[in-house]
């Protein structure tokens, strides 16, 4: 008895069952951890360069017990979310303007392109000079790091709305304001939310930079302080914490996407 041919496991873009997908994902995550554990268990590297997973876990517990881990997570999350929210609140309307009207695009897009190449880190002394060393200065650094990229990506999201959708509205007598409100914005929304998700990730990468500015709390600050005392295990703990929070937020965005745009997810 011969079987009908089955698609090869390695066929280009062949489908993969959900079970196999998550199994492979788990392997992908576990292998580097196992390698890390192996390297430290065999004492192939000095503890100062590479602490063991157990050291990191101990340090994390210590951080929670004797230091203010929850407080550090809270203040860092606050800074990231505040800087990112400020960016989003300004970027969405601006991107709608840039993506809708060529003159606005000409006026603002080359300028934004220019500014986004300015290194956010180099703005630290200026931010301290202009804004001071309060909470707002840390939020400002995160804002500088995310805002300009966000505007450009969102303007592109708006430009990607099919012209036929706009023209169908025009030939039904829609005014310009109505087209922006009733066609361009709702049509671009799923892409805008994706951009918000991606830029949230970038905002977290600017956290450590932001907490260079006279901070005395937060995950980024903790990492910087650990660096001073060569507490490699704490650096590891801080990095892993930030990536875990990032992953959780990312999944929350995906959930909101599925809930808000049912037509894109097969109901």
């Amino acid at each position: 008895m011969s079987h009908p041919p089955r698609p090869s496991f390695w066929a280009i873009r062949a489908p993969l069952s959900a079970r196999r997908y998550w199994l492979l994902a788990l392997v992908g995550i576990l292998v580097p951890f196992a390698a890390w554990w192996g390297v430290t268990a065999l004492e192939l590297a000095d503890k100062v360069f590479m602490p063991s997973p157990l050291d990191v876990a101990k340090r994390l517990l210590n951080w929670a017990r004797e230091d203010d881990l929850v407080g550090d997570v809270a203040i860092s999350t606050y800074r990231v979310v505040a800087g990112w929210t400020l960016s989003a609140v300004i970027a969405v309307p601006l991107a709608l303007l840039i993506g809708t009207w060529r003159p606005v695009q000409a006026l603002l897009e080359p300028l934004t392109d220019f500014i986004r190449y300015m290194p956010a880190v180099a703005f630290i002394p200026l931010v301290m000079l202009w804004i001071g060393i309060e909470e707002s200065s840390k939020i400002a650094i995160i804002f500088i790091g995310t805002f300009f990229q966000m505007v450009l990506m969102m303007a592109e999201d708006v430009r990607r709305v099919p012209m036929a959708q706009v023209e169908a509205a025009q030939t039904q007598g829609a005014s310009r304001a109505e087209i922006v409100q009733l066609v361009l914005l709702p049509s671009a929304k799923p892409a805008l939310l994706d951009t918000l998700r991606v830029t949230m990730g970038w905002a977290w990468t600017y956290l450590v930079v932001a907490e260079l500015v006279a901070a005395n709390s937060g995950l980024g600050y903790a990492i910087l302080k650990a660096q001073r005392f060569m507490q490699t295990d704490k650096i590891f703990a801080g990095i892993l914490l930030i990536s875990t929070i990032g992953l959780v937020i990312d999944q929350m965005f995906r959930l909101v996407h599925r809930q808000s745009f049912p037509w894109l997810h097969g109901k």
Partner: peptide, 19 residues
């Protein structure tokens, strides 16, 4: 002098509002 409600247009595709 421009598009108007008296002249509706049907396109080949991509004109429906998917949301």
């Amino acid at each position: 002098a421009g598009p108007g409600a008296d002249r509706a247009m049907v396109f080949q595709h991509y004109s429906l509002y998917p949301w």
